[in-house]
Design a protein around this nucleic acid. Structure first.
Lengths: 138, 138
DNA sequence: CCAATAAATGCACTTCCATTGCACTTTTTA
DNA sequence: TAAAAAGTGCAATGGAAGTGCATTTATTGG
C-alpha cells in the first residue's frame, strides 16, 4: 500500500485513496481492464472519477491505453521500462476470442515494419486475436 | 457499370442502383472510407441503407472493415485475392496523422508473429500511424 | 492554525457513432 | 399476377467517451 503511494508520487501523481485502490486493482488483475470493469469493482465511486484517474495515470506514464478492436478502450499498467512513446518499445496485445480478455505480451516486441517509400511511421498498433493459453489449455 | 453489376452478382449480391453506386464510389476512392463519407457523397440516400449495404458487402467478401484506431469504422474494397479471413493474407493498414486518411498497404503482409506457448492466433490487426507519402512529400 | 488556492471528486448532460425495429416499396418468383 | 422476399427509409435506441460546473478535499503560504 505504502509502496503504491510512493510509486504514484514518483510519477507526479497525488496518491489519493481512490487512485491507490485503482492502481492496486489493476496490479492484481493481470489483464487489461476497461473503464466498465473498474466501475463494477468500485461501485461507490463515480464513473467520471475513475475515467479521469485513468487519464491521469495515462498522462503520467503509469498505464497505457489499448485498442484491442473490441471498440472498448482498455488500460494496462506499464512495465518498469515501458516507454509507450518509443516505437521500438511497443509490445503487442493479445485478445482472446473465448474469454474476451486482453493481455499485454510485453516480451513480444513488434517486429520492424517495412513501409513503402515516403511513409513515416510514428506509432504501431498490433493486436493478435485468437485463443489464449488459459482457454486453449482446457 | 455493367462490370460492377456482374461483379456483385458473382458475389451473390443483388446489384441494386444504390449498391452499384456505392461500389463505384469506393473503387474510385483509393482510401478506406467511413460511413459518414458515403453519407456525404450520397445525401439523398438514407444512412441505414448505406450502413446495411456495407454490411452486406462485408458479409460477401466485397469489402473488409478496418479499425484504424480513430474509433471510426472504415471500409475498403478487398483486392482480387484478398482472403480477409486467412491469417497469411492479412495486410497492414496505414493511418496518416496529418490528412487523417487510412489506406490498405496490400503489398505489405503482416510478418509472422511469434506467440508464447499456448496462444493460438486467428486474426491479426496491424495499424501503423504516421505520415503518408502524400503528406511527407510536401 | 487559518485563510486562500489548487486539486480531486461527483452529478448531470452532451455527443458521436453503431445498430435495430418497423413500416413501406421494389423486386423476384411461383 | 399474387405472394414472398429483399431492399430501403424513418425514427429511435444504446453504449461508450467526453465535458461543464458545483462541491468537497487537500495543499500551502502567511
Amino acid at each position: 500500500m505504502k509502496e503504491i503511494e510512493t510509486f504514484l508520487e514518483d510519477k507526479k501523481v497525488r496518491p489519493t485513496a481512490m487512485r491507490v485502490l485503482i492502481y492496486k486493482y489493476m496490479a492484481e488483475k493481470e489483464i487489461a481492464v476497461a473503464l466498465a470493469d473498474i466501475e463494477n469493482a468500485f461501485t461507490k465511486a463515480d464513473r467520471t472519477t475513475l475515467y479521469r484517474t485513468l487519464k491521469t495515470f495515462e498522462k503520467n506514464g503509469i498505464v497505457h491505453q489499448i485498442d484491442d478492436g473490441t471498440g472498448i478502450t482498455k488500460y494496462a499498467l506499464c512495465d518498469k521500462g515501458c516507454n509507450c512513446e518509443i516505437e521500438q518499445d511497443l509490445h503487442l496485445h493479445f485478445h482472446c476470442l473465448n474469454c474476451n480478455e486482453t493481455v499485454c505480451l510485453t516480451k513480444h516486441k513488434i517486429p520492424h515494419i517495412n513501409l513503402p517509400e515516403g511513409y513515416l511511421a510514428e506509432d504501431v498498433n498490433l493486436v493478435v486475436k485468437g485463443i489464449c493459453e488459459k482457454c486453449s489449455g482446457q
